[in-house]
Design a protein around this nucleic acid. Structure first.
Length: 280
DNA sequence: GTTTAACCCTGCACGC
DNA sequence: TGCGTGCAGGGTTAAA
């Protein structure tokens, strides 16, 4: 499932590929799930007409949201669990669960494919972006300069919650999901259920550094394609960070550091993977 | 304030 | 072979 690194890889590729292009027309499939994909719009036509004829000027990212800037408008996309943006020729066969197709004037298409329909797309006026609640609530992006050591350690101290809950809390820092929070906690040598306000300053520092390092590495490897729902980039290629995973989905396999079998715990309706020896 | 569970959904693995 | 069941997960919301 796409988390910050995957979304950032897609953002960078979109920036390279579609900035400057003009949208000829947009097609939303006439299916229940396609309507679910654009659920903030009452009618397909409203979404389609909002984008037709506009030129793409910039691609931004906030947490796991991709913001495609057009003249006066912004197309907001969230890939949910199984969403994929795919850049193809118009002649390429259409995959199952393709909900939205954006046609460019110079040819080629951007398709939104999402089997589990947790993802969505919507169009907003540029001036109204600040009113989108989900974006308002997002915390600091961990790759931005604004995530300072001071803010990070102060929040950990104040929150008094389990570390994994905090890492996955999009209102604190945005973009981390199940895979990267597990990998970050392993890299920092901390357990998922360690109380956030009971860390030494050295441990806080390790965690802070692990966030930056794991995310940068994952972007360098073009994201993780670990699950049955394999993440694919804009061109349909898989990421390669799964070869680097230390604990995620490695239950029963020896820890890469100490050989102790990796354990899996059920926490808050999610699986969490950790080394009982290396993480305290 | 924090934690848990349910909800939305589909594909897949599994057992019978 | 085929059916039913459980599970996976992101984000939100309601309840505990």
């Amino acid at each position: 499932m796409p988390e910050l690194p995957e979304v950032e890889v897609i953002r960078r590729d979109l920036e390279k590929e579609i900035v400057g292009k003009k949208i000829k027309k947009v097609e939303v499939r006439n299916t229940k799930n396609a309507m679910r994909a654009i659920r903030r719009h009452k009618r397909r036509k409203e979404f389609e007409d909002a984008l037709a004829g506009l030129k793409i000027t910039k691609i931004d990212r906030r947490g796991k949201y991709i913001l495609t800037h057009l003249n006066g408008k912004i197309l907001v996309s969230h890939l949910g669990m199984s969403g994929q943006l795919s850049l193809t020729k118009a002649s390429a066969p259409q995959e199952n669960h393709t909900h939205v197709v954006i046609h460019f004037t110079i040819g080629g298409q951007l398709r939104f494919v999402d089997p589990r329909t947790f993802g969505e797309m919507f169009v907003t006026e540029k001036g109204e972006l600040g009113e989108v609640k989900e974006l308002q609530n997002l915390g600091i992006d961990p790759l931005e300069q604004a995530l300072t050591w001071q803010y990070f350690s102060k929040t950990l101290e104040e929150k008094k919650t389990k570390l994994k809950a905090l890492l996955m809390d999009q209102k604190f820092i945005c973009g981390l999901g199940n895979i990267y929070s597990d990998e970050i906690l392993f890299a920092a040598g901390l357990r998922f259920d360690h109380p956030s306000n009971e860390l030494s300053s050295q441990e806080v520092r390790r965690l802070y550094r692990a966030i930056q390092e794991i995310l940068q590495e994952a972007i360098r490897f073009r994201g993780t394609s670990a699950d049955d729902e394999q993440y694919k980039d804009l061109y349909g290629a898989l990421g390669e960070f799964q070869t680097q995973l230390k604990v995620y989905q490695r239950e029963g396999q020896p820890c890469r550091r100490c050989r102790t079998p990796v354990e899996r715990a059920r926490w808050s309706n999610r699986s969490t993977f950790f080394c009982p020896q290396c993480q305290v």
